[in-house]
């Protein structure tokens, strides 16, 4: 089965498009990077540890989850389980772009998918252009990675400047960034709003009932998937 978009642009050209289009999200990434740098200082990290973790992991949610459990002796199992739970949405992101990366070697896919990011997936699914989507995702991810590393270093180095700032107020910045991505999806007008609304309603009900986030995520996603399957079968009947 061929991918949806034939690769008219090469890997490098598509990568450059990804770099250019990532710039708006580099701002929010930088914010999280600074926050992580400040939090890393508070958790007793060295600058080398912060940068190694950020460079190798490149995931704000996973790194903050690990940081919350960072006490010696390190609770390895708890840290890894927590990191897996907060990163499980990556599995869904990877699933959703599995039709879009054809025409690239297996090695290239293994290497480049390590930089797969939420906004890159949103842009790939929204635009459906004739570009090399793996190159695009790589360029997008590489630019975000650079801004992530620089901002972590800045946050670490200038953490004393943020002592007075109320950084807890920014804990909602993650959902805000996701809301921008969600609006990009909704405005692309591809008729999936009903499924997303069902997921949102299920998540709302479960949140009001105080379910844990790692239970809400799969349940709400399954609810949306059930609706899309029903819609698919109904279209076939028609």
């Amino acid at each position: 089965m061929q991918g949806i978009s034939p690769n008219k642009n090469g890997f490098a050209e598509s990568g450059w498009i990804g770099v250019r289009e990532s710039l708006p999200f580099c701002i929010s990434t930088s914010l999280f990077g600074v926050l992580f740098g400040v939090a890393a200082v508070a958790s007793g990290f060295s600058v080398a540890m912060s940068l190694v973790m950020s460079g190798a992991t490149f995931s704000a949610t996973a790194q903050f989850a690990a940081l919350q459990l960072w006490v010696h002796p390190l609770p390895l199992g708890s840290i890894l389980l927590s990191v897996f739970l907060v990163s499980s949405r990556n599995i869904l992101l990877g699933l959703s772009v599995s039709n879009y990366m054809d025409g690239n070697s297996l090695l290239a896919r293994f290497l480049c998918l390590g930089l797969l990011s939420d906004p890159a997936v949103v842009m790939i699914l929204r635009e459906k252009r004739s570009i090399n989507n793996l190159g695009y995702a790589f360029g997008y991810g590489a630019a975000l990675w650079c801004s992530w590393m620089i901002s972590v270093w800045l946050g670490f180095t200038f953490s004393n400047l943020f002592v007075e700032a109320n950084l807890n107020a920014l804990s909602f910045a993650g959902p805000l960034v996701m809301a921008t991505m969600m609006m990009l999806f909704i405005k692309s007008g591809r008729g999936q709003v009903g499924c997303w609304a069902v997921s949102g309603l299920v998540a709302l009900g479960m949140a009001l009932l105080d379910f844990q986030p790692y239970i809400i995520l799969p349940t709400a996603v399954i609810a949306g998937v059930i609706l899309v399957l029903i819609q698919f079968e109904m279209r076939k009947v028609k």
Partner: peptide, 16 residues
């Protein structure tokens, strides 16, 4: 199904 997954996941993270 694959195409709705990211949106569903984001809604499940934003709403709570």
């Amino acid at each position: 199904v694959l195409e709705v997954l990211p949106g569903c996941a984001m809604m499940a993270l934003i709403v709570p």
